[in-house]
Design a protein around this nucleic acid. Structure first.
Lengths: 158, 158
DNA sequence: GAACAACCTCAACCTCGGTTGAGGTCAAGG
DNA sequence: CCTTGACCTCAACCGAGGTTGAGGTTGTTC
């Protein structure tokens, strides 16, 4: 019982990795972090339910969107524990990222517009520069600035 | 010679920190990383030229845009070494981030649109899902959809 | 029944953008 | 002169999202 024809309902780590496009070390990591679970063989090797492929797909897709694993984990935790999630379940989760994405696009767009304003003047350090003073609720996750800047007191003149 | 009235042309670390809105430890860090320079007093204490305030402002503003320190450093390296940068110099640097920003907005927008497409079907793991297949390089079998988007700045693949 | 790939655990390491702390020195006001 | 706060260096640490490697086991194939 070893080739694709006889495949059981459980997947080995190698198969899971190949099919989900996630490294085996990442599978271990995700399991430690509680994003996926596995069963074990008598010999202590992992075996994954097919459902993990969907979960991993969701993780990957969410990461593309710049969502942190912590938030992805929270989202996954809202899936039913007593049955396999349906399409509707996954659609609900996906929908929940929408606001996130809108906010980030909006933020980036505003930043770009600020930059356009700044290019003309070469300011970047003046108190009146919107870009320089941008500290308004920047998103905290996703690619981009990690930490917000404090408002400034004093700013170089000249 | 110690109060603001008599301030010389060089700034102490504390002054620089307060005026630029950057912690002293960050100043040290930036110096180690080659983003700013300083002179030293006879007693080995740092003294900063006023120009560093502009540089620090540029660093801060660029970080707001989500640019890495490595790239900021490259940009700063294009400033003239023989004179203080002019407004035009700073405007040139700012302008150089524009493409970056456009690309990121564009990418995020495409992701959002993919997500919208996915919400209807709840797929996320189907081979035909654009979002899922974004950055797909395993694409083992079948004519996989071309990658929709690249990971942000060279994200190392597993 | 042996070979060998795939698997296991655990710990250490990586990048990025810094912060924190220990232990010691400098500079300015009184 | 003496105190005090600002400063110095160096090393360790943070957290996110994993990877790498050592040393040992399992499971499938010939």
């Amino acid at each position: 019982m070893s080739n694709a024809e006889h495949r059981r309902h459980l997947l080995t780590p190698g198969e899971t990795s190949a099919r989900a496009g996630v490294s085996v070390s990442a599978l271990h990591f995700y399991e430690r972090e509680g994003l996926v679970t596995s069963e074990r063989t008598a010999g202590n090797q992992r075996r994954y339910h097919r459902d993990v492929l969907r979960r991993l797909a969701f993780v990957r897709a969410s990461q593309q969107l710049g969502i942190s694993l912590a938030r992805i984990k929270e989202a996954l935790a809202t899936l039913p524990g007593d049955r396999s999630p349906t399409k509707a379940d996954w659609a609900r989760l996906s929908r929940s990222w929408r606001d996130d994405l809108d906010a980030r696009i909006d933020q980036l767009t505003r930043l770009r517009d600020s930059l356009d304003g700044c290019i003309g003047c070469g300011c970047l350090s003046l108190r009146s520069c919107a870009l320089y003073n941008a500290d308004d609720e920047l998103a905290t996750d996703g690619p981009g600035p990690r930490r917000l800047l404090r408002p400034l007191e004093d700013v170089p003149e000249r």
